[in-house]
Amino acid sequence: MENVKVFSIIIAVFSVLSVESVGLKDLKTCNFGAVYNFGDSNSDTGGGSAAFWPAGKPCGETFFGRPVGRGCDGRLIIDFIAEHLGLPHLSPYLDSIGTSFRYGANFAIGGSTIRPQNESMSLNGVSPFSLDIQIVQFDQFKDRTGHFYNRSYPRHHRNLPRPEDFSKALYIFDIGQNDIAAGLRKKNDSAFHASVPDIVDQLAKAVQNLYEHGARTFWVHNTGPIGCLPVSLHYHDIKPEELDEQGCLKAQNAYSMEFNRQLKARVIKLREELPHAALTYVDIYAAKYELIGNAKKQGFVEAANICCGFHEDEIQVYCGHKQNINGTEIYAGSCENPSDFISWDGVHYTEAANRWVAHRIINGSFSDPPLPIKHACHIP
């Protein structure tokens, strides 16, 4: 284990030195003709709504003015990434209406895990579209769109990806939080820790599969501080000693940190195994934890506050839902100013918080190697 830590430090230092020796001004901007995303609700732009039931009001109110399948008031980190790259927002692979896959596709589904779980959407909110299924969907997508692109009239090409763009696309992974949540539900620390190597190895296999089919640039997010989610703080009886200096549950964050530690080591190993791949490890945990720790300085209310939902006197009504309480119907609507909040519904971040995090990871500040996303195709 110590050897892995030492090797990780050496690689990280070497990456920084390599980038500094070349200089960003000497690197050409990557021409990402498309983006393909794999993930859960943190980057789901409508796949879950297409597969199960649509995200209803007040979701989407801040930017889109209506629900558009995202589990927050507006845009997600993946939306800000697409905008930064000069590309349209990604259409969900499962959405059959008004979609265009010319510049990529989004395979993320809310509730998805890396490793398939013996649970269900109705019982635990766990999606059957685990990462292995998302990769199978991508393989089919690539095969079928290539077939139709080569056989259809040019006027039909506008909604199909160009076959040559697959090798030049950016492949993003933003998944793992629900694997950790599953481990927390089972309340078995030893079982969870024993499962982490297999979880990160399954993500590595997904990267390898894409690499074998021509993908070369990968942008891999680790998972955020799950113990800082207000849902964890509102739904449990908590003792003061269980919290860290930011008011987050230490034990839950320990799960996230262990997953992230092993994920980073596996990404470093992938760089050896896939010599022609540019692999960027993005520390979402550090970015989000920094925001939570500096909420007021950054213009937000306390990080534990929830914008959408009813959470009073130990009564919890989830965002957008109604519930009869003591003869009175309660509608769990949104707050007056969502941009003042970090948390939208206790689990997902607001558009304002997503923008804050996105702007900090896009410039490479939380990346290994520390390259801006527009230079992520370069191998240090």
Rank of each mutant, 00 (worst) to 15 (best):
H193M: 11
Q246H: 11
P92L: 03
F64D: 13
H193Y: 15
F218Q: 02
K168P: 06
H311V: 03
A277F: 04
K288G: 04
A215S: 08
F341Q: 10
H193G: 05
C319L: 06
S167P: 02
F259R: 01
H156S: 13
Q177D: 13
T223S: 15
H236L: 09
E290S: 10
D165C: 09
T45F: 02
G33N: 11
E2I: 04
S122C: 08
E245N: 11
H378N: 07
N253P: 07
V6D: 12
N42Y: 13
Y318P: 04
S343C: 06
L274G: 03
I284Y: 11
L131W: 07
N31K: 12
G299Q: 08
G46I: 00
E20H: 06
H213A: 05
M121W: 12
E312M: 08
A51R: 09
D313E: 14
S167L: 04
D368M: 15
G247M: 03
I9L: 14
W356F: 15
Q202S: 10
N188V: 00
F138L: 10
G224A: 09
L85A: 02
N324F: 04
H89N: 12
S18L: 15
R75A: 08
A169M: 11
N324Y: 01
D44E: 09
G47F: 02
H276L: 14
G364K: 06
R271Q: 15
S343K: 12
K264C: 07
H311F: 12
W219L: 06
M121V: 11
N363V: 14
G227E: 07
G299N: 12
A204P: 13
N178I: 02
F366Y: 15
C319R: 05
C335N: 05
F107M: 11
A50Q: 11
L94D: 09
S152G: 08
L94N: 10
K28P: 12
R266K: 15
D283G: 03
S334D: 13
C72E: 14
H236V: 03
L203H: 05
S49Y: 03
E61V: 08
H311A: 05
D40P: 08
N326P: 02
T217M: 01
Y285K: 00
C308I: 01
A254F: 07
I238Q: 06
I199C: 09
C335L: 14
S152T: 04
E302K: 11
F52T: 00
D132K: 13
S120W: 06
A55G: 05
P58E: 04
N3E: 15
Y318L: 10
I292G: 01
P67M: 00
A303S: 10
E245C: 05
L270E: 08
G247K: 01
S15I: 00
F129R: 13
G125A: 13
K28D: 14
H147L: 15
F366C: 04
D340Y: 09
E312T: 07
N305I: 01
P161A: 07
Y153F: 14
L371S: 01
P154I: 02
K250M: 12
P58W: 02
A286I: 03
N326I: 02
Q262P: 10
P230Y: 00
S122Q: 06
M121Q: 10
T29Y: 04
R70E: 06
L270K: 13
A215V: 04
S122K: 06
F138A: 02
F173Q: 08
G364I: 07
P197S: 05
H193W: 15
G33V: 00
N324R: 13
P197R: 05
T217Y: 01
N324G: 00
L371C: 08
G125W: 14
E245H: 13
E312L: 08
F141A: 09
R162G: 03
